[in-house]
């Protein structure tokens, strides 16, 4: 084992892992109670209130098909929304960077995307697009669009003034300034936006599913959470919540790794 990977394990893997185990132990005793013989130190909580970790594990094993299907469906909704916001966000950022007038006129409405509670407009999305995949992808799209626009616009317009002068002195055309300066300069900013958006898109998809979940046999994590909380299947609910978190983490990590590979040249001294 190289010292590099050993360092990775001891510095970045072990500490969170240790904390996770500590958390599981604390959770277990909180739910199950602490007793020494006849002496009750903490009587624990009822299973319908906080299930033990072992019960959650059991429920996850039993419902694994349901959970995997739900996770994949939610992931596809989130990724569709994320992909759309990356593409459309890039186009909007490009338009903003080309015309200050358009940017000034439209930016307040871009902020609207950031501030409107998705819960409030979910009924409208269902009204216009019906229940199902499209509505969920749109919900993920709306939530994850703004960071791409904001970071992308910044990356295309916030250029080192001396670099602009350099291009001006060598009589660069508008097209050369765009392809050789603005666009390369914007890449790290776009990636920052994509990192934020990737996590948001999962939230958007899950919230979308609360309202527009897939009817019938197949449904996503949001609908599963909605359904199980109504049926008091509390252990399965916990399992679904954990799946949502892991899904968000997985997408965030995938974008992070892709960004690291892509940005090797841009990143200073790393």
């Amino acid at each position: 084992m190289t010292s590099h990977s050993r360092r990775f394990i001891t510095h970045y893997l072990l500490p969170p892992l240790a904390l996770f185990i500590l958390f599981l132990v604390a959770w277990h005793f909180y739910a199950a109670g602490i007793r020494f013989g006849e002496t009750v130190i903490w009587k624990g909580t009822p299973a319908y209130f906080v299930p033990r970790p072992s019960a959650v594990w059991e429920a996850a094993r039993e419902g694994r098909e349901k959970l995997v299907t739900a996770s994949l469906l939610t992931a596809s909704g989130a990724l569709a929304g994320f992909g759309a916001s990356t593409l459309i966000g890039a186009v909007i950022a490009f338009i903003f960077s080309q015309s200050l007038l358009i940017q000034r006129a439209a930016y307040p409405y871009a902020i609207f995307l950031q501030t409107v509670p998705i819960v409030a407009i979910a009924p409208l999305i269902i009204l216009w697009f019906g229940s199902g995949f499209t509505a969920i992808a749109i919900s993920a799209f709306i939530v994850s669009l703004f960071p791409i626009i904001a970071n992308g616009t910044h990356g295309l317009t916030a250029i080192d003034p001396q670099a602009m002068e350099l291009f001006a002195i060598h009589r660069a055309t508008r097209w050369q300034k765009l392809t050789k300066l603005r666009i390369p300069n914007s890449i790290p900013h776009f990636v920052t936006g994509m990192r934020t958006s990737s996590g948001l898109s999962v939230i958007g998809a899950i919230v979308g599913e609360f309202f527009a979940g897939f009817p019938g046999e197949k449904f996503g994590l949001g609908y599963l959470i909605y359904q199980t909380s109504g049926q008091q299947k509390i252990a399965l609910l916990f399992a679904a919540i954990i799946c949502s978190t892991l899904l968000g983490l997985a997408i965030f990590a995938a974008v992070g790794i892709a960004a690291r590979l892509l940005l090797r040249r841009w990143v200073r001294g790393q």
Binding site: D160, Q162, A163, E165, L166, I169, K180, L181, P184, I187, R265, W266, R268
Partner: peptide, 14 residues
């Protein structure tokens, strides 16, 4: 031709 050397190196990092 004219060229300009700036206060900062102003190199394109990519």
């Amino acid at each position: 031709e004219l060229s300009f050397v700036f206060q900062a190196p102003t190199l394109l990092p990519w």
